[in-house]
Amino acid sequence: MIELSQVSKRFGDETAVDAISLKVPNGKFCALVGTSGCGKSTTLRMINRLIERSSGDIILDGQAIEAYDPVKLRRRIGYVIQSTGLFPHWTVARNIGLVPRLLKWSAEDVQARVEELMGLLGLPIEEFAHKYPHQLSGGQAQRVGVARALAADPDILLMDEPFGALDPITRVKLQDELAGLQARLHKTVVFVTHDMDEALKLADHLVVMRDGQIVQQGTPLALLQRPKDPFVESLLGGLERGLKQAALSRVKDHMSSLGPTLPSQYRIAADCSLRQALSVMLRDHTDRLTVVDQHDVPIGELSLRRVVKEAQLEKGATRDA
């Protein structure tokens, strides 16, 4: 559990972060979103005390962060940055094993952990263990960065625009892998990004910041349905908000069972999002899709009417809540 209450940071006369309060429960993924200079990175770096805050409290697992030695605190918190910050004079294996070595693990334990993490992040050991950072592609380097952050199995992971410098295809791939990792590892993650799609895709809890203040926070769905002001709305994609919301729902949660009518010749996988289903309908000029499982066996169907109605239902549901 990470808890920030009334936290501010002033650099001289400039207020970078202005009295923000925020809670990230254990195992949850929190994304800080905003334009450049809105104070989101500063907020992140106050948590591992790379920057000391000017006022307010930051509480980690029930203890104020001043109670921890900053060095020991940082060894308990994974940290990933956009430029990777890998040590250019160390091999991939040595980079990943850094924090366990700092914690004085035995050489065998470090070795075993490095191999485990390289497996977890899809970096074949024979191919990558002895490479140097400059020999890696951007995506590979960032995988190493994530592996290094996870090395001592920290409960908390801080990520500062980790995929910001990658090409779109690699970025989406790494986002998917991070989502998969999070589903297995349940870390408490604070993730800074200016890419709203990335935030919507990964976060349980979304925090929109502007000029050092929190404008709005809540689940992605809640924000999409009720953006507080035009700034949040434009950040969420303006008119495309409906599509982004559809992207949050899975086809399998909204399909109806196979009816007596002839199934549609157009198919969609149950794991796809409603947004993808809409796209397929537009592409193939149809208002009905057959939903198939991973073995291509029909298991239900989805109609355009139903997609639209589901959106209405959800709107009603949040209104009631």
Partner: peptide
Amino acid sequence: DTLEAASAMG
């Protein structure tokens, strides 16, 4: 960046 990463790793 490299030096900050070194600090951030503890």
